[in-house]
Design a protein around this nucleic acid. Structure first.
Lengths: 245, 245
DNA sequence: TTAATAGTGTCTGTGAGACAGTATTGG
DNA sequence: CCAATACTGTCTCACAGACACTATTAA
C-alpha cells in the first residue's frame, strides 16, 4: 500500500452538532438537550449525532434537526411549511474534545422562527430552549458539555454578523411579519435597542429585502402594521449597521 | 455497547486541504501540487494530507503548510520571520468526493506574502503557483482534482470578503510595505482598479490599520513612498468598500 | 524635460442617526 | 381621553467617489 492510501490512516468518528437559534419573547435562545449517557451525563449539550456512512454532512445536519425539532431544513429553492435556514458553521476536532475517542464534529447553524416547545427525540432525554446569555454567561455549573459553549459562541457570532449584510434575520420570523417584529429580531440578536423610525425607513428602502403581502395585523397592539414576507434578496445593499458597543 | 458509543459508528478518514493564496505580479495565485498517485494521477490539486491521530486540525494544517512551503503559520501573537495567516475555511464531506473511501476534508485558508518558488515536499511530485483565474475559469481539462475547484472558489470568496472589513490584506504583504503595494493587493484580490488617491486617504485614515515605520522606499519608482507595517487593528471601521460589479 | 508614483485638497451625493410630528388602533 | 405602535419628514454629520493639484524620484 502507498503511504497515501486513506485506509492506512487513523479512523475518526465524524458527528454533526447543531446550533439552533430562535428568538423567543424578545430573547435570543438556543436549543439544548439533556445528555442521557456519559460522558457529561445529565448536562445540557447541543443536539447532534453521528454522520452515517453514506450521508452528506448537510444531510446529516438536516436529519438531526428533523429528529430534534420536526423542522425541515430550508434548502435554497424549497419553500412552504416550517422551514429553517441551515448552514455549515465550523469544524471542531481537538483530539481531547471527546474523552471516549477521536471525534471530529462539523457544527452547523440553524436559524428558526419561534416554535412550539421542542420535542425530545433520538438520544435526548429532554430538550428545551435556553437563553443564549445564560448558556454563555460566566462558565460555571450550567456550562454545556464538551466544547459546546465554544461552538455556540461561534454560532451566535456568525448569526450576529450575517444579519448585518444579509436577509437572514427573516429566517427568525414567521412567513409573514411586520417591520416591528423584524426589528425586535435584530434587537434580540444584537442585544441593542434600535430606533424604530430609522429602522423602518431602512428596511423598507433596501431593495429586495421585504415584499408587502397586502395584509395588516394588530397583533402587536397599536396602529395596524403592514405585513411583509422576505424578498428575494440574500445580500443587503446597503447593509444594516450594527450599532457600536 | 450503547448505540451512542462513538466506536460503534462508521470510521472516516479526515484530511486537511489548504487554499494557499498569494499575490504574484499583481495577480491572485494559489498553490497547487501535482498528484503523483491515483486517483487523479498527474492532475493538479490543493496541498493537503491526513490528520494524525493525536493532532489538532489547525496543527495538521500548519504542518502541511510547512511541509509544502516552509511557511510558519501565524498564530495570533507570534511574530517575526516568515509567517502566514491561517484560518479554517469549511469542511467537505460528500460521500463520493474521494473514490477510494469516505474522506472528510477540513479545508483551511492561508494568506501569504509573495514567496520564492514553492518547494515540493511530502507527497507532491511538484508544486507551483497558479493564477486563480486560470484554475477556476471554465472547468475544462485543467480542472483541479477531487472537489478542489469548489474548495478553492470558497477560499477565494472568503478572502475577497474578509479584506473588506478586516486588515487581512496586510497578510499578503511583506512586513514593511507601501500604500501603493497594499492597494495593488486589493486590486489583485478583487480584480478591480481602485482610485489611488481615495485609497490612500482611506487606509491612512482608518485607525489601527497602518503604522508608519519611518522608512521610505522607491522600489515602485516615482516619488519615495512611506513604509508601513500592519497595525494592531483586526477589524476595520470604517470598512474598505469593494466596488460594485 | 517627461513619466511615474506619492500624497493633499475640495466638491458632491448618499445615507445613518437624531428626533419632530402625524396616523390608527385598543382600552 | 391616553397609551401604544406605525409610519413620514427633516436636519446634520460622516464619508465614498470623483478629480484637480502639488511633490519627488528616475531616465
Amino acid at each position: 500500500m502507498s503511504p497515501y492510501d486513506p485506509s492506512a490512516f487513523p479512523p475518526f468518528a465524524v458527528t454533526v452538532d447543531l446550533v439552533v437559534l430562535t428568538v423567543r419573547e424578545h430573547v435570543l435562545s438556543a436549543l439544548v438537550v439533556r445528555r442521557g449517557e456519559p460522558p457529561f451525563q445529565g448536562r445540557w449539550a447541543l443536539p447532534g449525532g453521528f454522520v452515517r456512512a453514506d450521508e452528506d454532512l448537510a444531510a446529516a445536519a438536516a436529519r438531526e434537526l428533523a429528529e430534534e425539532t420536526g423542522l425541515r431544513a430550508q434548502s435554497p429553492g424549497s419553500s412552504g411549511g416550517p422551514g429553517a435556514h441551515l448552514e455549515q458553521l465550523a469544524t471542531f476536532g481537538d483530539p481531547q474534545r471527546d474523552p471516549r475517542m477521536r471525534v471530529v464534529s462539523v457544527a452547523h447553524l440553524v436559524l428558526a422562527p419561534d416554535l412550539p416547545a421542542p420535542r425530545a427525540g433520538g438520544d435526548a432525554r429532554s430538550a428545551r430552549w435556553a437563553q443564549v446569555g445564560e448558556l454563555l454567561g460566566s462558565g460555571d455549573g450550567s456550562a454545556l458539555a464538551f466544547d459546546h459553549a465554544q461552538i455556540l459562541a461561534e454560532g451566535v457570532e456568525r448569526a450576529r454578523a450575517k444579519i448585518e449584510y444579509s436577509s437572514l434575520a427573516t429566517a427568525f420570523c414567521p412567513p409573514s411579519f411586520t417591520v416591528g417584529e423584524l426589528r425586535r429580531v435584530y434587537e434580540a440578536v444584537w442585544g441593542v435597542a434600535l430606533d424604530p423610525r430609522n429602522f423602518h425607513r431602512k428596511v423598507t428602502g433596501t431593495p429586495g429585502f421585504l415584499v408587502p403581502t397586502g395584509g395588516t395585523t394588530t397583533r402587536q397592539g397599536g396602529r395596524p402594521a403592514q405585513l411583509f414576507r422576505a424578498g428575494g434578496a440574500t445580500v443587503l445593499n446597503p447593509p444594516m449597521l450594527r450599532p457600536e458597543v
